[in-house]
Amino acid sequence: MEPILATNKLSPFRQGAQAGISIAIGYMPIALTFGLLAKTTGLTFLETVMMSMIVFAGASQYIALNLLSLGTGTFEIVLTTFVLNIRHFLMSASLNEKAESDELWKKALYAFGITDETFSVAATKEGTVNASYMFGLIALSYGSWVVNSGIGHLVGASLPQSLQTSMSVALYAMFIGLLVPSFKKQRKTMWLAGLAAMINSVLLFFHMPKGWAIVVATLVSAVLVQYAVNEREREDA
């Protein structure tokens, strides 16, 4: 018999799934709208669902629709997608520092589900992350993304306008909900976030493409703060 106490402790998969609920909620309005826009751009239901299943990247999929409707060629759309996704190199490398040493194929499999949102949730979790946790987290996020894209195309409508408008804040609120608690634990996280936010704003103001701006802002901030931390430790020593 299983000990009764063990039921209080969730399995890593269920922990991940639970952490994925806010992502699933946040993806709903974006995926519904994607399905709707895909329909108006002329994609069939199958093509729409297939794109969400295979690409699983919100911003890229939106831009692809936009470029398709402008009649842009395949190569340019793919290149734009790549540039927009360069930031995931950084996220994947960062997650690797936190990842338990699972078998390689499992890591290669859950890598498919790394988005801004799943990365943020996994990276701010206490302790390490393993493949089961990632699978749980991704199952909910991916499910919401794919299913709601399909519904958006089928129903041909998104949420009521007022709800759609207020739900546009959902993912940003989630990012804030993940970030702010770390301010209380480690003061340097405030510097990291603040500095990156400032650099990102300045770069976008000068019209740097979004894909590059976020990479430059993140790297410069992470390196500068690490340098400052090292210097201070050296002085203290």
């Binding site: 930031r87 950084l90 996220m91 490398a93 960062s94 690797n96 520092e97 936190k98 801004d116 990365f119 943020s120 990276a123 701010t124 940003y172 990012f175 804030i176 993940l178 970030l179 770390s182 340097k188 996280t189 990291l192 976030a193 603040g194 500095l195 990156a196 936010a197 400032m198 650099i199 990102n200 704003s201 701006a213 976020i214 802002a217 993140t218 790297l219 901030s221 992470a222 390196v223 703060v225 690490q226």
Partner: peptide, 15 residues
Amino acid sequence: VLKNVPYATLGALIV
């Protein structure tokens, strides 16, 4: 640096 990345990314994702 890589351990700093999540907090910097979050800052840039929000603002």
